[in-house]
């Protein structure tokens, strides 16, 4: 299994959200953010994201402390021939400030042609 990125949060701060976007390439994305307990058992579906609604609210620090999130998404193909590049950027914000930004290591960047390309990203919020 790929590493889980540990992201420190302010326990007394405002709610946290994650945003999925492809800022530098005209590509579409869609997917789901799943929430897991610290013991890695499934908890709840945190929310859906699309190209135009890329932000998923995760909740207040007291709720998400120690929770692990799995971003399961895909870059949606537009029948590109020849294929085109993409790069997914995950951004986690609290108090309106970016506390972490990263390109997922599992298919977070690459090329897309005539099939959707799934990507994965895991992170844990720790106060």
């Amino acid at each position: 299994m790929s590493n889980i990125t540990i992201i420190p949060i302010n326990a007394n701060g405002e709610p946290i959200s994650v945003t999925l976007a492809i800022p530098n390439f005209p590509q579409s994305i869609g997917g789901v953010v799943w929430r897991f307990n610290a013991d890695k058992t499934f908890d709840v579906k945190a929310g859906l994201f699309t190209t135009t609604a890329g932000e998923v609210p995760l909740g207040a620090p007291s709720v998400v402390d120690d929770k692990i999130f799995l971003v399961e998404g895909a870059v949606i193909h537009h029948n590109d021939n020849p294929p085109t590049p993409y790069q997914v950027v995950v951004t986690i914000t609290q108090n309106g400030k970016i506390i972490h930004t990263e390109v997922p290591s599992e298919n977070g960047s690459g090329k897309i042609g005539t099939d959707n390309v799934p990507f994965l990203y895991r992170f844990q919020l720790v106060s």
């Binding site: 869609g30 399961e72 895909a74």
Partner: peptide, 28 residues
Amino acid sequence: TDSLSSAYARGLASLPPPTLGMTLEQAA
């Protein structure tokens, strides 16, 4: 593009939750 993106997200959300350790092959 909105229709495609929404259709994909809704479709994925209707599947059973994955395991945290899901591989890229399983995601595919």
